[in-house]
């Protein structure tokens, strides 16, 4: 049985169909990158996978169960999400924010117990955030904040981790730092990762397979070597690129090329 099975999915907003009938399967423990031009439907697809929007047609099966038939509360035990950044109106501490990740295991009136605090402390250690746990989240650097948000996702104890451009606001040091962290969680816990990435070179290095979307349809779903080719990139991004190989890993390297040159 496939871990995640998306069949005939159509999704979008009122009067605006964004995802137009797509189907794909993901195995447990895979690290999948979703790439594609602006407006291709990457974020919409992720929001549909994460219960934020309901599909117009088709289904998403997680271990054989239709996720949109599960309650949001129960689904959050199986799947967690990390966005680009967290803009909190109030300055909660890192510890307060990460504790909120235990919500899927707590009823409306229930407060966190000792076990919840233990799980949170472990996640803070794993993400190297223990020393910063009393700091207000809005006083952290964007990279530290991403680590905190990954810790918050971890305490949901998910099997599927969705990420929406987790490195969008980060410098190159933190880009690899965050993705290395996600990759190691992916390997250690057989955590399945689906990650929207704009940076094709990061996508090439970290992902087992790339799902290339354009205009709400799948253009290709294969290894980085098969997807990141001149022809496909030209077709999807209308961009001329030089595609080379990373001498260390043999993975494709994409260099955008000025049309004026």
């Amino acid at each position: 049985m496939d871990f995640l099975n998306v069949t005939g999915l159509k999704s979008g907003y009122r009067n605006n169909l964004v995802i137009r009938d797509i189907s794909f399967k993901i195995k447990k423990g895979e690290f999948i990158g979703i790439i594609g031009p602006n407006g291709a439907g990457k974020t919409t697809l992720l929001k549909t996978l994460s219960h934020i929007i309901k599909p117009i047609a088709g289904s998403v099966f997680l271990e054989g169960r239709d996720i949109h038939l599960l309650s949001t509360h129960l689904f959050a035990r199986k799947c967690a999400m990390v966005g680009q950044d967290l803009m909190s109106l109030f300055s909660f501490t890192v510890l307060e924010i990460v504790l909120m990740g235990r919500n899927p295991y707590l009823g409306l009136f229930k407060q966190e117990q000792k076990e919840d605090v233990e799980i949170v402390n472990k996640a803070l250690e794993r993400t190297n955030m223990s020393l910063l746990k009393q700091r207000p989240i809005d006083e952290l650097s964007a990279g530290e904040r991403q680590r905190a948000l990954i810790a918050k996702a971890l305490v949901q104890q998910p099997q599927l981790l969705l990420l929406d451009e987790p490195t969008a606001h980060l410098d190159i040091g933190y880009q690899t730092d965050i993705l290395d962290l996600i990759k190691s969680l992916n390997i250690e816990h057989q955590l399945t990762v689906v990650c929207v990435l704009h940076d094709l070179n990061l996508a090439s290095q970290y992902c087992d397979k790339l799902l290339l979307l354009d205009e709400g349809k799948i253009i290709g779903f294969d290894t980085p070597q098969e997807i990141l080719t001149n022809d496909i990139l030209e077709q999807a991004f209308k961009a001329t690129c030089i595609v080379d190989k990373n001498i260390l890993q043999g993975k494709p390297v994409v260099i955008p090329f000025s049309k004026r040159a």
Partner: peptide
Amino acid sequence: TFLARNLNIMSLGEEEAITMGLD
């Protein structure tokens, strides 16, 4: 006061709250 934990999560934004399992 007893329901306030949910309000904390809600204040992070609705989409964030949904992915954290809040109805």
